[in-house]
Amino acid sequence: MNPAPSVIIFTVLSGMGFGYLALLATVHDYSGIAAFWHWFVGYALASIGLAASAFHLGNPQRAWRAFTQWRSSWLSREAWGAVLTLLALAPVALSDWLHLGLPGTFGWLGAGLAVVTIAATGMLYAQIRAVPRWHHWTVPVLFLAFGAAGGCLLAGLRMPSLLALLVLGGMMALHWRVGDGAFARAGSTLGTATGLGGRGQLSVFEPAHTAGSYLLHEMIFVVGRRHVPKLRALALFLSVVLPFLAMLLLPGRYGPYVAVPLHLLGAFAQRWLFFAQAEHVVGLYYGKR
């Protein structure tokens, strides 16, 4: 699949933002102007991510229509989750900032919505059976692990960060391991795609078109798969190992200053790979994956 910058920025930043907002609303206890800045960062990450997703649309002026199909569409549910979370947490943020003393229940409600939103983002991809690497429960869980780790690091919570990073590392490895055999397990081949499987050795004789097309550009992205092992190592080190060491070894408040930028870079590398490595079954028709 084409690793479009808009969707990479969207999933990474909004995941981290909603993870952070969920923690701010529950376990964290800032007040006054400090609270304002912390909430600002959370809202900014989530909103920049959501805004980036609009750049992926052919007709963003009609984006409001995406709220109509929540009963069947995960993208619609994701949109509702995002907006409801940001609305539900606004009074909590104001209460922290201006000392209004809102009961904690409101925070937990908003945090729950944030978790649902991150899971819905993962389901956008996990629901697609035609991309076997994505069609697995590890995808939403991995997105949730990213949200938890990013949120804990931003909040500077030492022990929760270390734990969340361990879980994230494990999920990332599991997602890669499960994903590597997914295409073969799905059972789609040029033989099933054309129904000519049992007749002998089957190969592409001529392409359907010599020029490029939307399909080739969007779903048959074959560039950059050569460097998969290097990119995986990079993603794992930057998003998990180095932030883990930084949070473990650096004193007090300095940990997050080092860990957060590294984790973010690693998350971008992981997400680029998430798209670039995912193979769509339509590639079979072109003899490319």
């Binding site: 649309l57 007709n59 995406a66 629901q127 697609i128 035609a130 795609a193 939307y214 399909l215 769509h280």
Partner: peptide, 26 residues
Amino acid sequence: DACIGCGLCAWACPYGAREMDADAGV
């Protein structure tokens, strides 16, 4: 008239039956 051009349907189709029009974004 209601299509926002998100492309999710083209991803969901195993057969590559849908193509986004690059001019109209639908």
